[in-house]
Amino acid sequence: MIALQGVCKTFDGGASYAVRDVNLEIPAHTFVAVVGDSGSGKTTLLKTINRLIEPEAGEVCIDGEPVRSVPPHELRRRIGYVFQGVGLFPHLSIAENIGITPQLAGWPDDAIRARVEELIDLVCLPRAYLTRMPAELSGGQRQRVGIARALAARPAIVLMDEPFGALDPVTRDGLGGECRRLHEHMQLTTVMVTHDILEAVLLADRIVVMRRGRIVADGEPHELLAGHPDPAVSTLMDMPRRQAARVRSLLEERTAHE
């Protein structure tokens, strides 16, 4: 379980807060989607969990243990992280990128090799790509590798920061489905930041909406879809429903014509 208590983060000495007073409990094996405007603090929130950012106030605990008490590199080897913008190491091959965390953790070479092959299959890339360099892959393929890298050391928790940005809708949908499948298969606790509210509704067990550093809504997709006292949140959650209704009416028009 991940628990955030009164987490605050400011980058300008308190003039403004990127994350303000956030309380959040994520039970094990939950898939949480974090949505919100650009600059609302989603990435910052995610990074406080694996200590890429240290909060000014508040505490983050994993399974009851404060993350502050764990050496950062050990903590991060236990938590998969998919970066907004991928962040593959350009000087390492795809195989080395995927296997980096197991390698740092001192796994034996053949165990790493087996794991890397397992993962490249899991994210549906041909094994021949293992010897390529990141620059020799398309943007979407790189994002798959980023996901594989995050999962390599069998973490219990995966943090994903817009893992499907810059993908075409078909690939995006396919990869989203795969992520959910991996989440089930590996019994993960997943926190995924996304801009796409439909994606959040379709993939997540629970949606957290952020605005100006605060959590303004938190609930299961169907609860939020049913309506929310905050007008901005209800407009936001209305969007997938309105889109679905429009698509349906278009389809019905078409069948009526024929």
């Binding site: 950062p72 590199h73 991060r76 992280y81 970066f83 962040g87 190491f89 000087h91 980096i100």
Partner: peptide, 25 residues
């Protein structure tokens, strides 16, 4: 800087980041 942060993100210590990422690049 994104690569440098990724180095920490995958669990490198500062020393490992120097040897595996900064110096090779």
């Amino acid at each position: 800087p994104a690569i440098l942060q990724a180095a920490h993100g995958v669990g490198m210590t500062s020393r490992q980041r120097l040897l595996h990422v900064e110096l090779p690049l």
